[in-house]
């Protein structure tokens, strides 16, 4: 099929700031379910979505990080995190729940430039 498009999901919001995290994940998985070429990028407070050991039960929220390992199940292997966003929050890959590719701003710019569709959350 020739109607495969490259789709980038950009996450810039903290995990319990509205529904962004859940909707972004839904969009990524649905894109993959329809055989699109999906990549996911986390930057700014979006990197907090990737932190290990989130336990939002007491604030009556669903743990959106549980779904992150599903990206791999859906063959979404391109998960990127912008380095400056990690550094600004004193985080490293060690703090993150799933394996990611850390990229600098030039690579992030290239990544954005390569896409047919970019969805921002």
């Amino acid at each position: 099929m020739s109607n495969t498009k490259s789709l980038l999901i950009v996450n810039r919001h903290a995990p319990y700031d509205g529904m962004y995290a859940k909707e972004a994940m839904d969009a990524a998985l649905i894109g993959a379910a329809f055989n699109q070429k999906v990549s996911v990028m986390f930057m700014d407070d979006g990197v907090y979505q990737l932190l290990r050991e989130q336990a939002p039960a007491d604030i009556r929220q669903k743990n959106t990080s549980l779904t992150l390992p599903m990206l791999d199940m859906y063959d979404i292997n391109n998960v990127y995190v912008e380095r400056a966003s990690l550094q600004a929050r004193n985080l490293t890959e060690e703090n993150l729940l799933i394996p990611v590719q850390v990229i600098d701003s030039v690579q992030a710019s290239e990544l954005l430039g390569q896409q047919d569709i970019i969805l921002n959350f």
Partner: peptide, 15 residues
Amino acid sequence: QEYGHTPITRVFIKI
């Protein structure tokens, strides 16, 4: 329970 998500058939079969 584990993933907070019901996967599509193809992915569930993989699991």
